[in-house]
Computed example of a mutant assay.
Amino acid sequence: MHSSSYFLLLRVIAVACLGWAVFTARAQDAYPNKVVTIIVPQSPSAPADALGRTLADQMGKLLGQSFVITNRDGAGGTIGVDAVKQAKADGYTLGYGTQSAFSIQPLLRKTMRYQAGDFEFVCQTSTFVTILAVGTKSRFRSLQDLIEAARKAPGTITLGSMGLGSAPHIIGESLAKDARVKFNHVPYRNPGDLVTQLMAGDIDVTVLSPVTIANNKDIRPVAVLAGSKLATYPDVPLLRDLGYSRGEVPIFVGLYAPKATPAPTLARLRQACASAVESEAFKRMSDNLGVQRQYADAPTYTENIRQDIRAMKELIPELGIKPE
């Protein structure tokens, strides 16, 4: 090849490479330029779903693109979280859910396809307030009534939950450990079935959100799992005031992305997430659900996940909950 032709070829290649670099940079700058999917690893009736939809709507408005929710529940949330891990790390598939899929479920399942290190944590948005509840048909008028019955007949009081390692399961077993009693754990797949069975008196106790109790008049709250009383239930005592503080297992929810998502994309998502949490729409939805807005930036959210992993590694064996 003549030297002039050789150098001409090099120039063509250089121009092509430069053009591709410019195209790539513009594509990144344009994020998002198509629909973004947020996978919620819970059912459409879960509080995280309602929060996630509001967050998606607000982030979409801020970034000028549609953010849509897809529900992938099952296996304690691990199915949905694994779907996020398997997705392309380009910012167009995200996850939104509680920390239990990272801190609790890996301890309870013999086969796991992901770990917390497989994700970029974008921002934490909220913490959930929960309430121990019985049905209005129940013979138990208070938590102390239920505890006394459990002491007299170990293993006969039924604790309903959304499955192994779910928040009601961990909270209920923590309470049982604290009160030195034993509950009979009854897992459900559908939240609606759990609530229906509680109201019918087929299970004795479970853990619910304030909005679920407010929407079902046949449910009686017996203890609030929070640091202060709820304005909506001023006469319901705090669990800690009844002498059982161990049941206050934290539940927080946030947005996350696959590992190796580009830094500029993460920066845009984090900025939009922070603004969305401060929006009037998100505040209103949080109030309606009885959820506490508790924004945490990426480093703090990541550390919260790590702390919960450490805490659950101690708590789960102590409660005697075995992997399946």
Rank of each mutant, 00 (worst) to 15 (best):
L18W: 09
G64Y: 05
V68K: 08
A21E: 02
V35C: 09
V68Q: 11
G52D: 11
V35Q: 13
G52Q: 10
P44G: 06
C17D: 08
T70A: 12
A48T: 15
L18T: 05
A46H: 15
V36F: 06
N71A: 01
Q58M: 12
V40C: 14
G76F: 08
V22H: 00
K61Y: 00
T24Y: 08
T37D: 08
Y31S: 01
Q42V: 10
A21V: 09
V68I: 10
S45G: 10
S45F: 09
R53V: 05
G76I: 07
R26L: 13
C17H: 02
G76D: 12
A56W: 00
S66Y: 10
L51V: 11
F67R: 02
P44C: 05
Q58W: 11
T70Y: 07
L62E: 11
S45K: 15
S45I: 04
K34L: 04
T24W: 11
Q42M: 11
V68E: 12
L62Y: 02
V40L: 10
L18H: 00
T24I: 10
P44A: 08
I39W: 05
P41N: 13
A30R: 05
K34R: 15
V22L: 08
A25Y: 08
I38G: 02
Y31G: 01
T24D: 14
I38S: 09
G52P: 13
L51A: 02
L18N: 11
G52L: 02
L51M: 12
T37L: 05
D49L: 02
L62F: 00
F23N: 03
A50T: 12
S66C: 07
I39S: 07
A25Q: 02
L55A: 00
L63V: 04
P44L: 09
C17K: 04
D73W: 14
L63Q: 05
G52N: 11
A25G: 02
P32H: 06
R53L: 08
A56K: 05
A75M: 14
D29A: 15
S45E: 13
W20M: 14
A30I: 02
L55S: 03
C17G: 05
R72G: 01
P47A: 12
D73A: 15
V35W: 03
K61A: 07
D29V: 08
V40W: 03
A46W: 12
P32D: 07
G19W: 07
L62C: 04
V68H: 07
V35K: 15
R26M: 13
P41Q: 11
A46E: 14
N33I: 04
G64S: 05
T54G: 02
V68C: 02
A56H: 01
N33F: 14
L51C: 04
A30T: 03
Q28P: 00
P47Q: 06
V40R: 11
D57Q: 15
G76E: 12
F67W: 04
I39Q: 03
W20E: 13
Q42E: 14
R26Q: 13
A30Y: 01
P44E: 07
V35S: 06
L55P: 09
L63T: 01
A25C: 08
S66V: 06
G52A: 04
C17W: 11
R53F: 01
P41K: 09
V40A: 10
A48D: 14
D49F: 15
A21S: 13
V68S: 06
